[in-house]
Amino acid sequence: MGPAYGTQSAYCAYQFAQALLSNTPHTIKNIFFYADGVYNGNSYTDPASDEFDLVSAWQELAKTHTLTLTICVAAAQRRGIIENNLADHFQLTGLGELSESIATTDRTIQF
């Protein structure tokens, strides 16, 4: 739920996902970005050269581990994120996707 920059929640979620997928038997079915968390999928994000590029890090994690990165379409539209500026490996979806993921997994973790 946290934006890519300005709070630690998105970075902590990224670190958690990275640690979970590194040499453990665990899997991640879906990473759902909601509220200000949708900013993690904005391709126009351009951090300074000495800052960690969280949007690119999410993309690389998704590519490496074949993860689904879903963004709430309603929250995204309210924040100016549409298909034209959606980063690679992210997809716009509704809350139904979140509900299905919750119903078909054994754990849901929120950051």
Results as ranks from 00 to 15, higher is better:
13 A>Q: 12
15 Q>T: 12
15 Q>G: 08
15 Q>V: 10
16 F>G: 04
18 Q>Y: 12
18 Q>E: 14
19 A>D: 11
22 S>E: 07
26 H>N: 12
27 T>D: 13
27 T>S: 14
27 T>P: 03
32 F>Q: 03
34 Y>C: 06
34 Y>H: 11
37 G>Y: 01
37 G>S: 11
41 G>M: 02
42 N>V: 04
42 N>F: 04
48 A>G: 11
48 A>Q: 13
50 D>V: 12
50 D>C: 10
57 A>H: 05
61 L>T: 03
66 T>D: 09
67 L>W: 01
68 T>A: 08
70 T>N: 06
71 I>K: 02
72 C>H: 00
73 V>H: 08
76 A>S: 12
77 Q>T: 15
77 Q>C: 12
78 R>Y: 07
78 R>N: 09
81 I>T: 04
82 I>P: 04
82 I>M: 13
83 E>P: 08
83 E>Y: 12
84 N>P: 08
85 N>Y: 15
85 N>E: 14
87 A>S: 14
87 A>F: 09
88 D>A: 15
89 H>A: 09
91 Q>T: 08
91 Q>Y: 06
95 L>V: 03
98 L>Q: 07
99 S>W: 09
100 E>T: 15
101 S>K: 00
102 I>M: 15
103 A>W: 06
106 D>H: 06
107 R>Q: 15
107 R>L: 12
107 R>W: 10
108 T>G: 07
109 I>G: 02
109 I>S: 03
109 I>N: 01
